[in-house]
């Protein structure tokens, strides 16, 4: 009677490999104990493609390198074209800055994947810094960066922070996530319009954002009602699957 050391079934006499798991039939000795026990891991490994074998960090780094190449070459090309045509940097500042912001964020996401708060703070600082630079060296110095850009930016980041906190605290994720996001959008638009009116007129005067806020609150209430009152353990993917 021959027993496969890996899965424990009885195989035919004189077989070299187990016909169930495909592992070689060995007599258990002190030397091959580790090899036998790693049978499952080796079989699982064989089923994976090269890409699946990469860790999450490795996959993110590949994405970072590719996106970096594209963005940086994009920046250089647009600057060159602009300079050749106009003999100065004019329109190319905009795509170049946007690409730079994107690249900074991809970088942050790759290297600070686990440290969400630090990522958020650095992301805020980098965008705010670019705002300042843009205003100083963008040609017309209007001071909108400190008066308008950075306050709205702070509000946006705080909203995102609150939203992420709420989502991570939610026990059942479903329609309530949509409701929270809608309310966050509403609040952000109220704040944005408030800041815009202060910047333009010097007083707080709200128009469109109030309409946004009211409709968003109604829809969110409905969604929250459906979510908590009917309390289906529905996840969105399943609910909306076609």
């Amino acid at each position: 009677m021959m027993i496969c050391p890996n899965c424990g079934v009885e195989v035919e006499e004189n077989s070299n490999f187990c016909s169930l798991c495909g592992e070689p039939i060995l007599n258990r000795t002190a030397g091959n104990e580790v090899f036998i026990r790693s049978g499952k891991a080796r079989r699982d490994e064989r089923l994976l493609t090269d890409y699946q074998k990469l860790t999450g960090t490795q996959k993110r780094k590949i994405f970072w390198k590719i996106s970096g190449l594209i963005l940086i070459s994009g920046i250089i090309i647009s600057l060159l074209i602009d300079f050749i045509v106009n003999r100065a940097f004019t329109w190319s500042k905009y795509p170049a800055t946007i690409s730079l912001v994107l690249f900074i964020h991809f970088t942050l996401n790759v290297f600070l994947h686990k440290k969400f708060l630090l990522m958020l703070v650095l992301s805020f600082l980098s965008v705010a810094g670019l705002f300042v630079l843009f205003d100083r060296y963008g040609g017309r110095q209007t001071g909108w960066d400190l008066k308008l850009g950075i306050p709205v930016l702070i509000a946006a980041y705080l909203t995102i922070l609150c939203l992420v906190f709420l989502v991570s605290k939610a026990k059942q994720k479903g329609l309530n996530i949509i409701a929270y996001s809608l309310i966050a959008t509403g609040l952000l638009s109220v704040f944005t319009e408030g800041m815009l009116s202060i910047y333009n007129r010097g007083t707080i005067y709200l128009e469109w954002s109030l309409i946004v806020m009211v409709s968003v609150v109604f829809i969110s209430m409905l969604l929250l009602y459906i979510h908590y009152r009917l309390k289906k353990a529905t996840d969105l993917k399943r609910f909306f699957h076609i």
Binding site: G8, V9, E10, V11, E12, C18, S19, L20
Partner: peptide, 10 residues
Amino acid sequence: NQPVRIVPLQ
């Protein structure tokens, strides 16, 4: 009672 015999099972 005994380990499963794989060939008869197949």
